[in-house]
Design a binder for these strands. Sequence first.
RNA 1: GCCGGGAUGGUGGAACUGGCAGACACUCAGGACUUAAAAUCCUGUGCUAGCAAUAGCGUGCGGGUUCAAAUCCCGCUCCCGGCACCA
Length: 860
Amino acid sequence: MPYEPTRFEKQWQEKWFEKFDKDAESKLYHGRDFDQRPKKYVLVEFPYPSGAGMHIGHARNYSMMDTYARLHRMLGYNVMYPMGWDAFGLPTENFAIKHKRKPQEVTQENTDNFERQLKKLGLSFDWDRKIDTTDPDYYKWTQWIFLQLYKKGLAYKDEMPINWCPKCKTGCANEEVIDGNHERCGEPVTRKKLKQWMLKITEYADRLADELDLVDYPDSVVASQRNWIGRKEWIDIVYPIVRPEIQPEIQSDSKNSGGAEAVKSASGSVNEETEMKQLENLEITVSTTRPDTNFGATFVVIAPEHPIVEKLMKYMPPKSADQAKDYIKKTAEKTEKERLEEGRKKTGVFTGLFCKNPLTQKAMPIYLADFVMMTVGTGAVVGVPGHDMRDFEFAQEFDLPVIRVVVGDNGDKSEIAKADQVFEGEGRMMNSDFLDGLKTDEAISKIMDYIEKEGWGKRTIRYHLRDWIFSRQHYWGEPIPIIFCDKCGEVPVPEEDLPVVLPEVDSYEPTDTGESPLANISDWVNVKCPKCGGSAQRETDTMPNWAGSSWYFLRYCDPDNDKCLADKKLLDYWMPVDIYDGGAEHTTLHLLYSRFWHKFLNDIGVVPGKEPYAKRRVHGIVLGEGGVKMSKSLGNVINPDDLVNEYGADTARCYLMFMGPYDGTCEWNTRTVKGVRRFLEKFYRIIEAAVEKIMKGKDQNSDSSQGDRKLIVAIAKLSDTIIDDVKGLKFNTAIAALMKFFNEFGDSDFDKTEVEILLKLIAPFAPHLAEELWEKLGNEYSIHSADWPEFKGIDTSEDEVEIPVQINGKVRGTVVAAIKATEDEVRALAEKDENIAKYLQGADVKKVIFVPGKMISFVL
RNA sequence: GCCGGGAUGGUGGAACUGGCAGACACUCAGGACUUAAAAUCCUGUGCUAGCAAUAGCGUGCGGGUUCAAAUCCCGCUCCCGGCACCA
C-alpha cells in the first residue's frame, strides 16, 4: 500500500490521547510521580491561545521538543512534557470587547482549538497535567504568591509615572506602546502618575545576577540578563549650592546667553571676583560611574522632575524661576513620541544657581534638562563635555567650556571642539592634578577613595533593573487580593478567602477614570473589611500577564492540588526543569520574573532549589518564503492544520525539524516539504515491504540469519548519531542521518530485528508511521513505550579507514589502511599510490606528520 | 553607541577538540517508465580548464600563526537580534 498518512494518523492520535484507560499506568505520555527511573522535566513555553490559532513556529518548537521527549522516554527516562495555557491578557480582552462576548468563553474556544491543533501534530504532551492561568483553581495560587510577597514587604503600592493614553483614558503597558503611540488607538502616549502595585525585584538583583553561575544558559541569555540587571558601582557626590550675589545679566538676558555669560564669569576665578553666597543647607547630590573625569566637569544638570527643583526655585533669580517652571511644565506634557522625535537635540534652562566642586574649587552652573532622567542615578549629573557625547551636545547648545582630561591610545591631547573628538573611552588622565598619568580604572578607584576620605561623597551599587510595576487597569487578569478599609487601610485578603474570583460582567471597557473596569462593579468592589468588618473596597487593578507564567512550571508538578500550589514532595521529585525551550523574546522579562518568584518561594520554604531551570535553550523562528515575517496582511501565514492535512503530521513534524538548525532563523519552503514527504514515503515503502515479507514467512525461521555485519554496524552508528544529535538539539542533522542511511542501505534485505530497530529509530520523529508499521509487524502497543535499541557486542569501530595523503598541506590522494596502521605502514601504502609517487619522486622529504587513523602529510 | 550572534555552491544548510569543505535536502540538467504529461525511479550537479586521469581556484574582506585554517590570532565590511539620552 502506498504511504497515506491520513489513513492512520488520526486513529493513532485517538488511541494515544483519547481512548487510553483511566489507569495512569497505561497512559503512554504520562509523567509518573515518584517513578524509580531518572526523571526528565522537558518544558516548553506555554502558548498564549489567540483566536488566530497556532503559529507554525509553535508547531516547530513543540515538534522539536517532542522528539527530544520521545527519545528520552525510550532511553528509559520518566519524562514529563506538559502543556497549558497562558490565557490572561489584552488580545482576548480586546476581542471580547469588540464582539461583546465573555473573555471566559473566548478563552475556552481558543484553548480548545489549540489543544486540537497540538493533538493533530501527534505531540506527546501529558494532558493530565494541563493548566490554565485563567482557571480560578490556578490563579488562586498566583494570588497566594502575591500575598506572600506582600507579607514579606516585597509588594507595595507607590505612585509611579506610567504610560497613559489620553484618548482611551487608560494606563497601558510598555509592550502596548509602539513607537510612542498606543497600539490600540494610535494616539501618542503620555506619562501620568498613578498609584501602582510594585514588586521589589531589586532586592533580588544581586542573586539574579550572581546565581546565573548555577545554570546552563546560552551566553547571550546570561549576557542580556546581567545587562538588564545592570549592576554598576557609582559614586554619589554632594555639591553645596551657591548663588552669585549680583548677576543682573542673568535676569535680563534671553534664555541661552544668560547661562553662557554666567559660565564665562563662573569658570574664571569666581571666588575672588564674584561674591558667591552659600545657600544654607542646600546641596545637590550628583551620581556618576566616571568620577575620574571630574576635573573636566564644567556644569551640573538636574532632571526637571527632580524634587529638589522646588526648593531651588526660592533661590533662583525670578526670570530663571519663570523659565524653569515653563520648562518643567512642557517636559511633563511631552509625549514619548515627541521626545523621540527631538532626537539628540538638547534643551534645558539655566537656574541662575551654581554649585561648588570641592575638587577644583570651581563654580559649576546648574541647569535643568530633560535628557537627564529622574530614574537614573540620583537624577542629577555632573557635565563632563569632553568625555560624554550628551554633555558635549549640551555644552555646545549652551556655550559651556570643554576640558580634556583623558588621552586615548592615539596620544591625541588636542582641545575638544567637535563632536567626533569627544572621547568616551578609557585612557590616561591629564589636566587632573593628582590623577595625571593614571589609567582610567586606576583613576576611578583613586578618586573614589579620595572623595570618600574627604567626606564629599559615597560609593553606591546601583542597578539598571527597577522594581516591577505589577498593576494593570484591565479586566482580564488576576485580581490583586487586597482590600482597602476606611479604618484599617490596606488589608490583605485572608488566604482562606482565595481565590478572589473575577466577577462576570457585561462590559469590559476601560473606565473614564483610568481605573480597571472592575471598579464599576459595585457588588464586587464593596466588601467588609476582613479585619474590622467595616466598609471597605477591593483593589480593582489586576496583575500583569507575566504573573501566571512566573510559576506555571511548578504547578505542572501537581496540577490539581487544592491545599498548596504544589506538594513539596512532588516538587522535590520533579524540579528543577531539566531543559526549558523558549523564544528569544522572553530572555529578559519572563526569565527574570520567574527566576525572581522561584527564589522568593525558595526563601520562604515552598519550593526546592535556588534556580528553576537547570538548562535554557533558545529556539529560532520561522519566517515566510523570502525571509519576511509571516503576517495576515502579507497573506503568507502557514496554518499548521493545512500543512498536516496536505502532507500528514509526520511530514509536517519532520520538515519543521529538518528546515534548519534548532536556534536558526528558518525560511518556509514548500519544495523542501515535498522532499521530506518523499523520504517518509520511501521509508514506508521499504519497511512495509520488509514487514509483509516477514509476516508471510513468519513460520519459517527467517530471523535466524546473522544479518549483514556491515548493515548492523551502520544501524548501530545511526542510533548513536540520533542520540547525540537529539540530545544536542540537532534535529536537522538527525533526520539527514536517517535519509543518508536509506540512500545507502535502502535496498537491503532487512530481517525482523532490523526492521524493529529502524522503526524505533524513526519513532521520535515520525511517531504515527512508526506506530502503524510496528503494529503491522504484530508487535504489542506501543512502540512509544518500547526501549531504545541496544547494540551490545557490536563493535562499531571500523577496521579499515580511508586516509587522506597530503603533500605540502594539499590532499593529493587517499589510501585505505587498517585503522591501527603505523606511520611506516601508511607511508608505504602512500608511496605505492601513483599520484603520490609522482610528487615524492626525486623530492626531498623534510618531515612527515602522521595522525593515526586520520591523515598523513609529507613536507617536501 | 553597548551587548550577543552571523556571513560556507543556484538555494536551505553540514563539517567532533585545526586534519579529505559542501553531508542531507531543494533546484537544475540528462536518462528510464508513459501515446503524452504529472508522479516515481536512476545518473550528474562548487567554479575554471580538460574526453579523462588530473590541475588551478574556492568558506564576507585584508593580514598572520601552522605541515595543515570555514575552524585559532590581529585589523575591517556588511547583516540579524536585544538594550539604550543609563551619566
